[in-house]
Design a protein around this nucleic acid. Sequence first.
DNA 1: CATGAATGAGCGTTCATTCAT
DNA 2: TATGAATGAACGCTCATTCAT
Lengths: 220, 220, 220, 220
Amino acid sequence: MNKNSKLIPSMIKDQRLIEQRRQQIIEGAVRLFVQKGFHKSTTREIARECGLSIGTMYEYIQTKEDVLYLVCDHIHSELEQRLQESVSDDDTGIETLRKSLKQLFKVMGEMRTSVLLIYQETKSLPKDKMAYVLSKEEEITAIFERILEKGMNDGTIRIDPSSVKLMAHNIMVMGQMWTFRHWALGRHYDLDEYTERQMAFLLGEFTSGGNRDGNGNLST
Amino acid sequence: MNKNSKLIPSMIKDQRLIEQRRQQIIEGAVRLFVQKGFHKSTTREIARECGLSIGTMYEYIQTKEDVLYLVCDHIHSELEQRLQESVSDDDTGIETLRKSLKQLFKVMGEMRTSVLLIYQETKSLPKDKMAYVLSKEEEITAIFERILEKGMNDGTIRIDPSSVKLMAHNIMVMGQMWTFRHWALGRHYDLDEYTERQMAFLLGEFTSGGNRDGNGNLST
Amino acid sequence: MNKNSKLIPSMIKDQRLIEQRRQQIIEGAVRLFVQKGFHKSTTREIARECGLSIGTMYEYIQTKEDVLYLVCDHIHSELEQRLQESVSDDDTGIETLRKSLKQLFKVMGEMRTSVLLIYQETKSLPKDKMAYVLSKEEEITAIFERILEKGMNDGTIRIDPSSVKLMAHNIMVMGQMWTFRHWALGRHYDLDEYTERQMAFLLGEFTSGGNRDGNGNLST
Amino acid sequence: MNKNSKLIPSMIKDQRLIEQRRQQIIEGAVRLFVQKGFHKSTTREIARECGLSIGTMYEYIQTKEDVLYLVCDHIHSELEQRLQESVSDDDTGIETLRKSLKQLFKVMGEMRTSVLLIYQETKSLPKDKMAYVLSKEEEITAIFERILEKGMNDGTIRIDPSSVKLMAHNIMVMGQMWTFRHWALGRHYDLDEYTERQMAFLLGEFTSGGNRDGNGNLST
DNA sequence: CATGAATGAGCGTTCATTCAT
DNA sequence: TATGAATGAACGCTCATTCAT
């Protein structure tokens, strides 16, 4: 992608090759980082896992942190794409929400370890790259904001407008929770149970109104 | 504390001194880790920040990771204690919940950077220490489990019994969210708004019943 | 050599280069260890003496102890080879013994400081490496066992069969003695005198019979 | 002993106490050094093993190497004394030799690990202390020189006068051999066999004459 | 384009020794 | 005399990065 070409200069001219090699790097690095974490993985190990020589790898990146950025960006992209897939213009707001939530939990189940990875290692990114990754996180969150707004517009979702952003974040966090609290949640719930319960929790809020006061009472 | 004395042996005999120096280490390390993170802080920097020589610091710990454990354990302890403070036997379940949630968000506001720290660095702990820290995290979560159960027993909270654990985790995560999503949330909400909205969200669930199906509809 | 490649892994792929650099390391290390001993030599000093950077040196070894092993093994190999050279199938047993003893003392004279080195530092080797070095020491000793047996078979050497092993060890020790007692012996004897006297001592035993009892009397 | 008091100054005035504490240090240190060697034993460990605090220990020594010296000197003294015990003016030369050799091997059997210790660690002593220890080694060797001379004078031992020193060293080395080659010798001989064979070897030489030429032939 | 040997600053950790109490 | 907490120079070793081939 062009943005990466700008954020991460390469010594190589052939854009095709860059794309291909970076894909290799991402795949190897994800495998390794999921196992050992970013800090405990050496550049040599990353290169070996990618099937590249260390010298060749460095033709396509500038620093080890670039690898982490590539990885985070890739996972985010996959996440975004798969969430976007579940959104259809033909559905009502609540219907879209229902489908996208299902998809969210499904995807979090399937990408559990890699989502956990970006969750834990984003902070190791250099300032500029981190800002980029966080902005992507916000974009993904915005998918849910738009769904909520759609539901508000078509009357299928009731929610205080100023809470839309927050609820979108809540949704995202409930998805990620499955990855970063799996050590505890996984002992008590399987993904289906988790999905059903969290959806009930969220959808209850959106259908009952979200017009409650701080005490949980419906405002009149 | 005795547990630390067992988990982290010291060369020093005087228990008082160990307690005092470790407190020094924790304070210095928190300051530094919040600024630079665990991995980018060197042992020499930690020692300097604590006002100890590197040699002296190592009389009170065994490895750099021990410092991280000390820090995590300390923050957890403070967290637990402050949450526990807000729990009174005299209140009804829902009342206790309301107070403890208020306290949760208040504490997360005040300890934001240090809670974020343990949140991000726990994974860098060695296996045995990490297990210990996670078990503490579960203990804290259990505070909310007990509150929810109390409310169920006195009829002030309605919730599916099998969802108690999950909701306790949801509560904890909503608290921590303020620290790890503050980069986004902080631009749109202040802590009071955040508190009020999240409490409304949670208390709505608990008072309306939690007897909804996966579509958010109240079961009949 | 293959055995070293297995005992001491290297990060470098080119076997030629490994051989060459390890030779460099051995030469520098012997020079240094002879001067200062193993413990007082730092890895940086070793590297400097070898003409390598510390990083480069560590591409060819894993630990400082590996250097010691390389050194011990090299000296042993040279020792073994030079002793083996003096053994010819065409000579009688006693003749072979005479020649090999001469060679032994000659070599001990020429390799005095380096033999002293392995003699003093072998004990600093890690368990597995030490076992290997000691087994090599036994192999070298076995050279003399075989010579004695040859002489027994062709009737030129008389010795109690059960003393063969011991006498082989005695021979080896008389060789090494020149290195580790040189501080005293060297003040009274030169190498030629030492050689002649020790040979007379040993050969006297082997020609007169070795059939004496514990009192030194010839058994009848 | 006075010599130690001069070689190793102490902060303490009371000579009795010095003697006693140093005995403590020697006993603890020998135990430790035999197990782990000098270099791998820390001063803290030595102090603990002696039942002294590190501070107290340092009141009676100046450096860690002093401990090694104390140990070497002590073992040497015991060795010397026990050898001296076996020498009686009433016996003939050959008789004295026979008894002292028996005692030598007996003592080497009993003090095997500690003799090995001084044998391996003497080289780690600082120059001046090492010279002192080596001079002690020579003194002990001189015991055998005197025995051999006695036998030459009373006609019970035949040996080339210029070989006396060498044979005394040979005797000493045959004694020490039991300690530093025990890893190999011990698999084939027990101490009694070793003693008998080595005595036969030595006594054969001394009774047959030692008047052989470099080829082992008796000179006419 | 690809390679991998070379580099050295910098890391975590140790431990002989001191000295205030 | 006895103590043990404090010290910091120095150690062995790592690893991201470079660059000659």
